[in-house]
Amino acid sequence: MSAENKPVREIVTPGQVISTDPSHLAGRGAVKEADQIISVFVGLKEERGKYINVVPLNGLYNPQIGDKIIARVTAKTPVKFLMDINSKFVGILKPSDAFRRSHSNRGYPKSMGTYRVPKENEMGKFKMGDMVICKVLSGSRVEEPTLTSLGQELGPISNGVVIVISPTKIPRVIGKKGSMISLLKNLLHCKIFVAQNGRIWIQGRAPENERLLIESIHKIEREAHTTGLTDRVKAYIIQEKKIRGIK
């Protein structure tokens, strides 16, 4: 830790020995071979107690339970939707996890015999290519994740636009305690939903705002490994707003 209490961050490369201290343990992005801890990524080294981690600077999204992601319907089978989630996996969304049950079915005892509520065609509700905000219900490193679109903030997106950045840079777009997101929202008067899989839904007051927002997000993505990013982005947006005459 340096004087300003900032963790020391060094760029390490695959195969680099990042610690030879036998009491250290290999954290994420590192493997232990004999007494050496070796990085497996181009990334930033950080020490957390006994663990040595490497935070990769580039990489794909790996689904984790509870993540909120933006998925795209890319295929249908008679019983489920297959979703592109910007990962090596295809997400699975079953209609029972996607649509609220119709209330009309409830309360009819079986004794009512032949009466049947006609079943809605649930598979027709999402079209190919629709963007849906989903939550990861299950899945592991080797399994295809199942998703749900039922719940708060979840569901299909019908306006605005979705942009995509490298998923490793997402925490930076959110910022410490959401600081970067509120900065963007307040300075540019727009709505943002940052999904863990690298997709960001945005909707602004005017196309100029959206344009500057997209450029700011790309600036954050590009400079994600640097320090003092919040101030720089703030100065950038204020300056650009003056130049472009955006309110």
Binding site: S158, I163, P207
Partner: peptide, 20 residues
């Protein structure tokens, strides 16, 4: 940039059309 895949949805199309 804009998230584009082989399967194009009305979201992108509407947005691009709206701007144009």
């Amino acid at each position: 940039m804009i998230d584009i895949s082989k399967v194009v949805s009305s979201l992108e199309k509407n947005y691009i059309r709206k701007l144009l």
